[in-house]
Write a protein that binds this DNA or RNA. Structure first.
Lengths: 179, 179
DNA sequence: AATCAATATATCGGCTTGATATATTATAAA
DNA sequence: TTTATAATATATCAAGCCGATATATTGATT
């Protein structure tokens, strides 16, 4: 999905500023399956505005930053629906930690253990956070996606908890690093 | 991970051409957690060659394509080890299908069902494929990573099988599309 | 003999990424 | 109270990546 469609997706749920859009992908409901930075969001919003797909309110223009609020237009809604109707690209997971573990024998055992435990702790936090969310009034599509994220985080957490020693205790000189 | 490090990772396991490196990320052992295209691999190999981190054999240079085989040098091994020692970036999943499902109410029910079933079929295939792999002689790190991929694919497959009707039958006019 | 799929290298525009700069406001600590 | 810190907020830019495309050879199938 290109940055323009991602922005429209947020705006279809309500008006927002560029900063607020970012938060949706950084810590909000999209955080576990999409990502966009400011470097993509601001140019995307400018283009959407040029094309009449969003309308802007606020923003002085002279020097100091003032909040600009974007609202989707009827043309923007149409464009969004059309984007969703296109055949989706296949999923893409990019995990540098997994790449490191693949080459576990090239790593310093202490470093491997530290990275592993940080990573596992992070996924445990994600599980706890998602379990704490209130499902009341959330549309079916969003609940489904949330449930899938939780299933994914739980699977990783369980696997990493059960197989920790298998990886940490492998490799040269790893015996001291296990705890 | 940048394209250069990904290439070095493949070459550390044995000599390969650009095309063979690509296959490792497209259908090989890295396919489920990393991705690189030709547009990144060829420039990366050229840079690595300039820096003396890989050595090239073959390739005529005049017009028609001839296979070039790359081999990692001792300096390349050092550079690879150093790259692995750096703090890894956090995981990033990009799933356009999940984005579509989030906005299920904006989709034509038939289209949603088609996309859903294709997606589920794809993950079922991945599970079957990974279960068919022979673990004999595979180093611990690679087995661990393979197991984690399998855990991930299984979790998605199970969730999608159990919750299919919940999503497909939601939304306006969806009753006919369920089967 | 013709067709198709796989092998193989390479390029390029458009887009994304990650870092950085800048400024305001709200909160917490000294 | 003053200071420091964190959060809010917009914006830009170089470097690098992505997806599409072009080209050519080899092997397998019809």
């Amino acid at each position: 999905m290109d940055a323009k469609t991602l922005c429209l997706g947020v705006l279809v749920m309500g008006d927002a500023s560029g900063y607020e859009i970012r938060k949706m992908f950084d810590e909000g409901p999209f955080a576990h399956f999409q990502d966009v930075g400011f470097g993509s969001i601001y140019p995307a919003l400018a283009k959407l505005s040029d094309e009449g797909l969003v309308a802007v309110t606020g923003g002085s223009g002279d020097g100091h930053p003032e909040k600009k609020v974007y609202a989707i237009t009827p043309a923007g809604r149409d464009a969004f629906t059309q984007s969703l109707a296109r055949a989706p690209k296949r999923d893409k997971l990019r995990s540098d930690v997994t790449f490191m573990m693949f080459f576990a024998e090239f790593l310093d055992p202490d470093h491997l253990r530290d990275v592993y435990d940080d990573y596992l702790a992070h996924y445990r936090d994600r599980v706890q956070f998602m379990e704490s969310l209130d499902p009341k009034g959330v549309p079916e599509g969003r609940l489904f996606v949330r449930g899938m994220g939780l299933a994914f985080y739980r699977a990783i957490t369980e696997y990493m908890t059960e197989n920790r020693d298998r990886l940490i205790n492998a490799g040269p000189g790893a015996k001291d690093a296990a705890e």
